[in-house]
Structure formats: C-alpha cells, structure tokens
C-alpha cells in the first residue's frame, strides 16, 4: 500500500502552489515559509489590504483594553455588520407605501414570518444599529477624557463629530423603513423639529419629507438616503478618519 501523504505534506504542496502564492503576498501568515520574525511580522500587516489600515508597529499602551476599549474598532465593526445585514434585508424589501400598496409593511411581515433567517437578520440589524450609536457615543467620550483631540488631532475630532451626526442620521432614516406606527410617529416628531429651523424651516422639512407631510415619497427618499447616500458619505469620512489617525502619529497617549 502506498504511503498516504501527511497533513503537512498536503499543506506544503498547497502553499507551494503558483496560484496560492499569487493570492497571498510575501509575509502572509498563510504563505509557506512564514516565520515569526520581525520582518515577517512587519510584512504581515504591510502586505494585506485590511491590516494595513494599521501601522506596522503600534504603541504598547494602546494594546491595553482599558485604554481604548476597542470602541472605535467596534463602531467600525458595527458599520460592517450593518452593511452586510442591510444588504440581506434589501433583497426582501420594497420601499413602497400608500393606500392599497402597503408593500413595505407587508415585506416587513414576510421578513419576520417566512424568510429564512429573516427575523434574526432584522434583529441583528436593529440591535446593531442601536449598538453602533452607543459605541460611537462612548468612543467620543473616551477620546475626550484622554484629551486625544489635542494637536495634531484636532481635525480628526471634527471628522469624528461629523461621523457621529452621520451615524445618528443613518439610524434615524432606517427608523422609518418598517413603516409601522412606531416608525411613522417617531419620524414625525423628529421632522417636526427640523421644521422649526430658523428662516428655512419649511424648506428643510419639505426636502426631508419629499412633501408637506410624511408619505410614500418620504419612504422612498429615506430609503435611498439610508441604503446609498449616507453610507456613501460615511465611508468617505471613515476613510479620512482612519487615514488621519496614522498621519497624526497613531493613537494618542500614553497619558
């Protein structure tokens, strides 16, 4: 009987393969010959599109959980999670309302009742959204108490405040989409407030609602804002935010 190849033989052959080596760049931990050396550790973060958000080396105090509590990272994680669950929900949702065509609300019922994992994904999306607002708040508080907005990081704090507002607006536009009583009236309260903007109150409210009161046009408008426009703006500001962390010399501290 021929000798069976061991796991290490198979692993070695797979990793020595032209295709494998074209996918995993030098220094990747999945590549053959990765050694736990300074050089390969540096390459591991340099040669990976995701990891190179980080510098090759970080300040040791930043590893302590009680310094950052990972709040910025968790906010970003929530954003990714909401994007994924949101895309799933988009497959089953039509932003149409109005007498006789209450499709949006019917879709919500279907997502809860008959779509595989529909309720779970919707729950993840909803609780994730609340969690993101919360982690962004906490992240802001953490940054303030560490004085991390001080020079040279002033502008990144401003970008962060914009991201906080975008997060609130993302969450608020999503709030209307189920098109139930809760959504309609919560949004009515919010948009009535916007109507009291000095000088341009009526215009602001009209642009937000796509009409003089909440209706099918509002639903479509907020849907587009929620799934496309605000995420797009948010991603741009996120890119600036992350890039500036590195340009401003990494995370702040130690205190």
């Amino acid at each position: 009987m021929p000798k069976l190849p061991t796991f290490d033989d198979v692993k070695g052959n797979v990793q020595d393969n032209v295709i494998w080596k074209s996918i995993f760049r030098p220094g990747s931990i999945y590549r053959k010959g990765y050694r736990d050396t300074s050089r390969d550790r540096a390459l591991a973060s340099m040669n990976n599109v995701l990891y190179h958000l980080h510098p090759v080396k970080v300040k040791r105090h930043g590893l302590k959980l009680t310094y950052t509590y990972c709040l910025g990272g968790l906010s970003f994680f929530m954003f990714i999670l909401l994007t994924i669950t949101g895309i799933f929900l988009m497959f089953f949702y039509t932003p149409a309302a109005g007498a006789g065509t209450e499709i949006a609300y019917l879709n919500m019922r279907e997502i809860s009742a008959s779509i595989t994992f529909g309720q779970l994904v919707r729950n993840l999306h909803r609780w994730g959204a609340h969690a993101m607002v919360f982690t962004v708040f906490l992240h802001m508080a953490r940054v303030f108490y560490h004085g991390a907005y001080k020079p040279p990081r002033e502008f990144n704090w401003v970008v962060g405040v914009i991201l906080l507002l975008l997060t609130l607006f993302l969450s608020f536009t999503g709030y209307l989409l189920p098109w139930d009583q809760l959504a309609l009236w919560a949004v009515t309260v919010g948009t009535n407030m916007a109507g009291f903007t000095p000088v341009f109150g009526d215009q602001v409210q009209f642009v937000l609602l796509g009409g003089v009161e909440i209706g099918p046009e509002t639903l479509l408008r907020w849907y587009v804002l929620h799934v496309l426009f605000i995420p797009f703006i948010t991603v741009i500001f996120l890119a600036v935010h992350f890039w500036r962390i590195r340009k401003d010399g990494g995370i702040s501290g130690p205190l």
Binding site: A97, E102, Y105, M108, R109, S112, Q119, R122, N123, H125, R126, W127, P178, W179, D180, Q181, L182, A183, L184, E213, I214, G215
Partner: peptide, 11 residues
C-alpha cells in the same frame, strides 16, 4: 429579543 414591529402606519 425580536425587533419591534407595530401595526401599519396610519397618519
């Protein structure tokens, strides 16, 4: 915990 869903929106 299930996300809340009320009755159909009624202005």
């Amino acid at each position: 915990l299930d996300a809340p869903l009320g009755s159909l929106a009624n202005p």
